[in-house]
Amino acid sequence: MNQFRTVALLGLLSALFITLSYWLIGGPTGAVIGVGLAALTNLGSWYYSDRIALAAYRAQPVSRAQAPGLYRMVQRLSDRANLPMPAIYVVPTPAANAFATGRDPQHAAVAVTQGIINLLPDDELEAVIAHELSHVYNRDTLTQAVAATIAGAISFLAQMASYSLWFGGMSQDDDSPNPLGILLTVTLAPIAATVIQLGISRTREFEADAGAAQLTGNPRALANALRRLERSAQQLPMPGNPAFEPLLITNALPRNTLSHFFSTHPSTEARIQRLLKLEQERVGLRMPAFSRLR
């Protein structure tokens, strides 16, 4: 069901982009241009998303000699999940968080902050890394990069149309779109794109939590880690570009009830409750790696 919802939301996001192009550039030509721009942005996000995300957080690659314990943990979980060993990065910040990136499992990277290494005991850190490897396995890193890129392109196109509208760049002949319709479009399209993008992100987080529980056989470890990470974020938020927040395991900044609708992640309490429910249903969790996700 979550996979279907993700595909549906991505399709809706692409349709919104093409519709915006149709309205603002003009008719079928605008729709064709929209399809071309969507393809180009998707290609760019597919190829460069990992480099951009790692650079945004100033993540530094670490060798096996520099972090032997971390390497052993990632290697053990990767083997269990039948995944290639990802590149490992450490983000030099005391804030506690983690993320995965890369266009596919063969080009994946897992990044953890120095803060999360210092904060979590081994079983909880292992659960966090299992969550990130679940994102890699399900190719969520690519899905989220594509969603973010299309949403950004929609916002950019709407901004350009807004400038044209206010400064008289739009043609005023009978075939031109209604200025009021254009104004509503450029106002509402970016909001709709953001809501859709965040819906995709929240859906994939629940799926990755379930994958981590299956991979480690210890749902409570991830539940405990999420509690610690939320408390830590209230005291020491994760610095960095907000555009990359959907990649993180928890929100970079603490959220209140009113801001939840625009949150990149489900509420921590909702995630914990699902994990504890999985713990009660442990029969079937200890299975060959990710077999239930295939």
Rank of each mutant, 00 (worst) to 15 (best):
A130C: 05
A96G: 12
Q3A: 03
M170C: 14
V128Y: 01
P239F: 14
S49I: 00
G44H: 13
A81H: 04
A98F: 10
A109T: 06
D122S: 09
L142V: 00
D79K: 14
P68V: 10
L198H: 10
L43R: 15
I182S: 04
Q280W: 12
T250E: 06
R139S: 14
D123A: 09
E281K: 06
A223L: 11
L183A: 15
L229P: 14
M170S: 12
S263L: 05
A95N: 13
P105T: 08
Q234F: 09
G27T: 14
A56C: 09
A221Q: 04
I154P: 02
A39V: 15
S291P: 03
I117A: 01
P246Y: 03
M73G: 00
T6E: 08
R76D: 11
F261N: 02
A161Q: 03
L54I: 06
A96P: 13
H135T: 01
Q273D: 14
P190L: 04
I88W: 01
Q114T: 09
V32Q: 13
E279D: 14
A289W: 05
G44C: 08
A192I: 02
N138E: 12
A233K: 05
P68C: 09
V91A: 06
S263N: 15
A147C: 07
R51W: 10
T19W: 10
G102C: 05
P242A: 06
L12M: 12
A56H: 07
F206G: 04
A55L: 15
A225F: 04
S155I: 08
T268N: 12
I116D: 08
Y57N: 04
F156A: 10
H260I: 06
I25E: 13
L226M: 13
S267L: 05
H135C: 04
G44Q: 10
A158M: 10
R231K: 15
T141D: 04
T149K: 12
S232W: 09
E124N: 06
A158D: 09
I25D: 11
E132L: 03
L165T: 02
N138D: 11
A225P: 14
A212E: 05
L276Y: 11
V186H: 01
R227A: 15
G26A: 10
P92F: 02
V32M: 14
P61L: 05
G199F: 12
L248C: 00
S232K: 03
L275P: 04
P254A: 15
M1G: 02
Q3H: 05
F17R: 06
G44W: 14
N251A: 07
G240A: 05
G36R: 15
V32S: 11
Q235E: 15
R5F: 00
A81N: 11
L215Q: 00
A193E: 09
I154A: 02
I200E: 03
